[in-house]
Amino acid sequence: MSELMKIQENLRETARKLLANGEASLVIGYALGSEVSRVVPAFISREDEVDRLVWNPLCINNLAKYLLDYRHEPGKVAVVVKGCDSRAIIRLLQDNQITREKVIILGIPCPGLINPDLVAARLDPGAQITVAAVSKQDFSLQTGEGTFTFTRDEALLKKCRDCEQHTPVIADFMLGEEIPPNDPGDPFVAVKTLEELPVEERSAYWDKQFSRCLRCYACRNVCPACTCRECVFDQAEPCWVAKANNLPENTAFHLIRAFHVAGRCVDCGECERVCPVNIPLSLLNRKILKDMKDLFNVPTPGTSLEELPPLGAFTKSDPDEFM
């Protein structure tokens, strides 16, 4: 059995036990979606439903933020997290958005995910993935119509190419063999290329991106660092950013959001994934991530529970030349 399928079995067994002995009232994981290339976030509260849970290379969504929907309900919620998603758990814990005692973290060491567009292009949309495996060289997906392999080079999801922690940084149950962190190389190559452009060109680059923003707020809604009870962009009075969709307002929206998540963005890549018009949001957030690393010499936010976000912590040795 492939490691992925072992994890899937382990996941189902763990979920079954947690629900059976009443330790968890809900398990948030992944289930098969409406097409072969999609999985959906699944909310399992009955033992007889745990076999819907799957683990395969299409499990992209970061499920951590759903914990907020259940924080005021009695009972514990178990949630499936990959390495990148686990940083979001720490993010939510550090911001006191969730309490440690009320969540059960089901960690999955994740070897990297597959670009769903390639799967959609090659597999019959109506097929169902029954077995999945990942090796150092390729992904293989088995459906009723056969086994399809994709080389890692062509098919590895963009964000996974820079993966820092395959193994979750926090977990109550580790559902698979730990995968040592690899050296992802320099995650800031694209940021640096952009930084080197003359200011007019950089400005033109972002103008082109921001002008097509729909202000659908999917990037905000999916973001584990965006947890304000009332978001500035929803306030009518005072009106910080007008509802009008145009370049100045859109730019204001993007810059304000980037600064609001500065030092708290865990680099999960969800905002960029959900954007319907492919705005390269990770480039914007990684620019700030890079600056934070340069200025404060800190790891990616959410890497450790002890390491407080530099902009949210205070020490006596902080420089205070502006005072």
Partner: peptide, 28 residues
């Protein structure tokens, strides 16, 4: 209720849809 659990409450589906037509009025 089951379906809505996973919905992000974003504007993608309604904004890109050819038939959705809700609007808001505001002054600047």
């Amino acid at each position: 209720g089951e379906l809505a659990r996973r919905c992000l409450g974003c504007g993608i589906c309604t904004y890109i849809c050819p038939t959705c037509h809700c609007f808001d009025i505001f002054d600047q």
